[in-house]
């Protein structure tokens, strides 16, 4: 498909300019969002078949994740993600096969080789900082990377991610405070998906927006529609550029919606209504994206079907392949407690 598109001019140069994104980037955006969603769907299917013990997904947050991650420089900038950030990791280079190795806690999972639960990301070579299940600790790690880069005068940017539930923890405050004091190149990117497991926003905070707190830190920030990948990119990209030039940290809140239960072990019918879910499903970020780029004439209707087919095949192959990969040996539990001198 890319080859055929390369042979003709973009459908709408004006729109592409407004988007700040090239046709290829828009295609990548759609591909990564779709890959994240379809991977999550396959993961849940494997869980229901009893082949994967646990799934924690980012359904509903793909636009926020992919839009924000695409604003970073792959290979240069750092990502300190949280457990729903499959979409971010895909943009940073994770393959469908690796995602499946991670789900199945296989020996060769590059994230933790079966030592952590699924979706606990980390890939040093790709500059994805290893994360644990403890939330918001990574905000301070991001500040530390920002401080190190500032000391070394390296023009990099760090993006730290969390859900809005995590913003109640002390490390959120400490990290924003520290980063702002030293004007560090950190984008604190909060994906407000409406729920901290069962708790709605009003149980977590007394302000309307997480980003309202930027004033407390004398920090720049914004609230953006997290169901709109293009809007997210357009908000995050200038912030990244500014931070890279020494403009200091930003607090960006993407308003999204957690379309799925908290995890494969959660029953969300206990705490949210079908009506609410149906209402938000109409705003599914992947559907919205496709409608927008098609109605703006970037891609002819049906043109993106090919990506859907490619994603389906990629995932089918990845799952099949990953299931055959070796598990860690029991005694692989030992080792690497310390890095040898």
């Amino acid at each position: 498909m890319a080859a055929t598109r390369a042979t003709r001019p973009p459908r709408s140069q004006k729109t592409i300019d407004e988007y700040l994104l090239s046709e290829q980037q828009l295609e990548d955006m759609y591909y990564h969002m779709l890959l994240a969603r379809k991977l999550n769907e396959r993961m849940l299917a494997l869980n229901r078949q009893g082949r994967a013990p646990f799934v924690i997904a980012g359904a509903g947050q793909e636009a926020a994740q992919v839009g924000a991650a695409m604003a970073l420089r792959k290979g240069t900038d750092y990502l300190a993600p949280y457990y729903r950030d499959l979409g971010m990791n895909l943009v940073f280079g994770m393959t469908a096969r690796e995602a499946m190795l991670n789900l199945l806690a296989k020996r060769d999972d590059p994230n933790s080789h079966g030592r952590q639960m699924p979706s606990h990301w980390g890939n040093t070579a790709r500059k994805v900082v290893t994360q644990s299940s403890v939330v918001t600790t990574q905000f301070l790690h991001a500040a530390g990377i920002g401080l190190a880069a500032k000391l070394r005068k390296d023009p990099i940017v760090v993006m730290a991610c969390c859900g809005e539930g995590s913003t109640s923890r002390g490390d959120f405050h400490e990290a924003l405070n520290f980063a702002s004091i030293h004007r560090l190149p950190v984008i604190f990117f909060v994906q407000n998906n409406g729920y901290a497991i069962t708790e709605k926003n009003e149980k977590e905070m007394a302000v309307e927006h997480v980003a309202d707190r930027k004033r407390a830190y004398n920090m720049q920030g914004a609230v953006v529609d997290g169901m709109d990948a293009i809007a997210v990119y357009q908000t995050v990209r200038p912030a990244v550029d500014e931070a890279r030039k020494g403009g200091g940290p930003h607090l960006i809140e993407a308003k999204c919606y957690r379309l799925w239960p908290h995890s494969s072990d959660d029953d969300d019918s206990r705490y949210r209504t079908k009506n609410e879910l149906e209402e938000w499903s109409l705003k599914d970020p992947i559907k919205l994206f496709r409608e927008r780029v098609e109605s703006d004439g970037i891609f002819p209707r049906g043109d993106l079907d090919e990506i859907e087919a490619r994603v389906e095949e990629e995932i089918r192959e990845a799952a099949q392949w990953a299931l055959m990969q070796p598990d860690p040996a029991p005694e692989d539990a030992l080792g690497f407690v310390y890095k040898e001198l």
Binding site: G144, I145, L147, A148, D171
Partner: peptide
């Protein structure tokens, strides 16, 4: 570098900086 009066910051920031290679 003076840190704010916040021990989690001191250690968490050092983790990030050490990860970076300092």
């Amino acid at each position: 570098i003076d840190s704010p009066l916040a021990e989690s910051s001191i250690i968490g920031v050092c983790i990030g900086a050490a990860h970076y290679g300092l």
